[in-house]
């Protein structure tokens, strides 16, 4: 009884029990699924929108400005969402605008991720003065209001799509840096990273094989949120007249241009605003749905 090795009654019936229930697969509720549907719809529109749109974004075709929804211009066509302040088809412009607004925002977010994640992980891995100096500069950038920075950049470099992408990318790289650095620091203290270091692995291996794979999921969730911020940021710049320049269609400037119509009872400003809202709300719904499945369950046990 005292000596474990003396026990020859090896039975296979009592297998070692699993530690925890098998890992739950990521399942979305209907709300999350709805979000995915809407986001996928707009992403498809980024690619096919301009091809299926009845008119070109710059075509001035209708008889009248601020035509109501479901009106028709004889000989030209049907205006599902009416027309805007200079007699352009609103529905077509929204489809074209998807490409501009989402395309620019997506590229800028990618850029922000490229810069923010590289520097953030570098700061976490290198530590020391690299980390301190990068973090202080980053704090300084974050402390500047983003719209102000955008305003400054547009005034300095002129308003073009590359400027917009670079500006939004640079501004949001700062917040990505913070998150990537925090994630990186959490992972760097894990034993498996230490094991890799002691094994003599290169920095490259540690970053790409040990740290990044473990930061991928939280970064992906954050990408969604960041994309929403960038869409809102670019729309706001456009709303101030600093963003996309006419005649290109983008949702933010479309709201501004048609704002006056509200006074005449036209809803031309509402549709592009709704387009923004459906896209951003849907992304947030997905993100919420993913994070909800991992927390807050104890709170429901309160009585």
């Amino acid at each position: 009884m005292t000596d474990a090795t003396a026990n020859t009654e090896e039975t296979t019936i009592y297998d070692e029990l699993p530690d925890a229930p098998p890992k739950k697969k990521l399942t979305l509720t209907w709300v999350g699924k709805l979000g995915v549907t809407v986001v996928v719809f707009w992403l498809v529109m980024v690619f096919v929108g301009p091809y299926i749109a009845p008119f070109h974004e710059a075509d001035i075709i209708a008889y009248d400005s601020y035509m109501p929804i479901l009106s028709t211009t004889e000989g030209e066509g049907f205006h599902l969402l009416g027309t805007d302040y200079i007699e352009r088809d609103l529905f077509s412009r929204i489809l074209w605008g998807a490409r501009t607004t989402i395309g620019i925002a997506f590229t800028a977010t990618l850029l922000a991720y490229l810069v923010g994640v590289s520097l953030g992980i570098a700061a976490a891995v290198a530590g020391g003065w690299v980390d301190v100096s990068l973090s202080r500069v980053n704090d300084a950038i974050i402390s500047l209001p983003s719209i102000m920075l955008g305003l400054l950049a547009v005034n300095a470099f002129g308003s073009s799509i590359p400027t917009l992408i670079m500006t939004a990318g640079a501004i949001y790289a700062a917040s990505v840096f913070r998150i990537a650095r925090a994630l990186g620091q959490d992972i760097m203290v894990m034993d498996f990273v230490e094991a890799a270091r002691v094994r003599g692995e290169s920095m490259r291996w540690i970053i790409f094989r040990e740290v990044l794979p473990n930061a991928a999921m939280p970064l992906a969730t954050d990408f969604g949120l960041r994309l929403v911020f960038v869409v809102l940021f670019i729309s706001s710049l456009s709303f101030l007249g600093l963003g996309i320049q006419p005649p290109m269609a983008d949702w933010g400037s479309m709201v501004r241009q048609n704002l006056d119509g509200l006074g005449y009872g036209s809803y031309a400003a509402v549709w592009p605003a709704l387009a923004i809202a459906t896209f951003t709300i849907s992304i947030n719904l997905i993100v919420d749905d993913i994070s909800a499945s991992s927390g807050g369950s104890l709170a429901k046990k309160m009585i």
Partner: peptide
Amino acid sequence: SYKQRSKVDLQKVQFVYQMADTALNPKQ
């Protein structure tokens, strides 16, 4: 420090961590 040790020395002395959960990379 392990940083200054030769590869052979590193190979000869192996540390086994207490918690397998944090010692094994969950993504590998």
